[in-house]
Design a protein around this nucleic acid. Structure first.
Lengths: 125, 125
DNA sequence: CGGGATCCTGGGCGATACTG
DNA sequence: CAGTATCGCCCAGGATCCCG
């Protein structure tokens, strides 16, 4: 106790996964694949605002990390299925904790922001 | 069940906190403050590689979000203490889950990367 | 000591066009 | 359908200087 997550070393580990999951799109992709196996276009349609480029890049990254599996069918037109690996599923579980925290405390954060901004507004013109 | 974190809406919530915690320095600052109250220079010394600018920016952001408290003493030379708020402490708890996942699975990720890169190396020259 | 103000650069990301 | 390739923008964040 005392030390939160034994600070420096553990914080580094945490940052490593934040670098994998904390980018703009990874979490959305992981979230969608948590529902079940999906095809490329399906993901593109469901993840609002993502470009085909970023979907490809994100999927490659996640595949490289062993979080997402890619299954290609040699047919015309091409068909590729994406799914979470077992490792990917454990990640979803881990992230669930953060989501819970978010749902529980996001209002407090918004309130704190409003308070902070209002105070700043009063101090200056 | 089935849906991991009821995908879209919850994934958005998760991204909101990832935007707060997932930047380059926030987690390090939070981690250090989890140990106890610290002064500006103390944090700067303990967080390797952070610039005074980014420490200031990060602290302001966390203060605005109600995660960090700032106490100023009107003395010369100035003295400012930073500490986690109660909300900040709950965040540390939530992040602990991710840290645990990191410690447990980071080796698997590294292995997956090596495998992936090796395979790519064999396919191309 | 604890910052602000400025300037500058890298690379993350979007837009667009082309392919098997 | 499922990508790859190219270009270019933007801004997070580093470096530097100054100030109460």
């Amino acid at each position: 106790m005392g030390a939160p997550f034994s600070h420096t070393p553990a914080a580094c580990r945490a940052r490593e996964i934040l670098d994998r999951v904390g980018d703009k799109w990874s979490l959305y992709v992981i979230s969608q694949l948590g529902v079940g196996t999906k095809r490329f276009t399906e993901l593109k349609r469901e993840i609002d605002g993502i470009s085909q480029r970023m979907l490809t890049v994100t999927l490659r990254e996640l595949e490289r990390d062993g979080i997402v599996s890619r299954t290609m069918y040699p047919v015309m037109p091409p068909r590729v299925d994406y799914a979470l690996t077992p490792l990917g599923h454990t990640l979803v579980e881990a992230v669930r904790g953060l989501v819970g925290w978010a749902e529980e405390h996001l209002d407090e954060i918004d309130a704190a922001r409003t308070t902070y901004d209002t105070r700043a507004e009063q101090v200056f013109g």
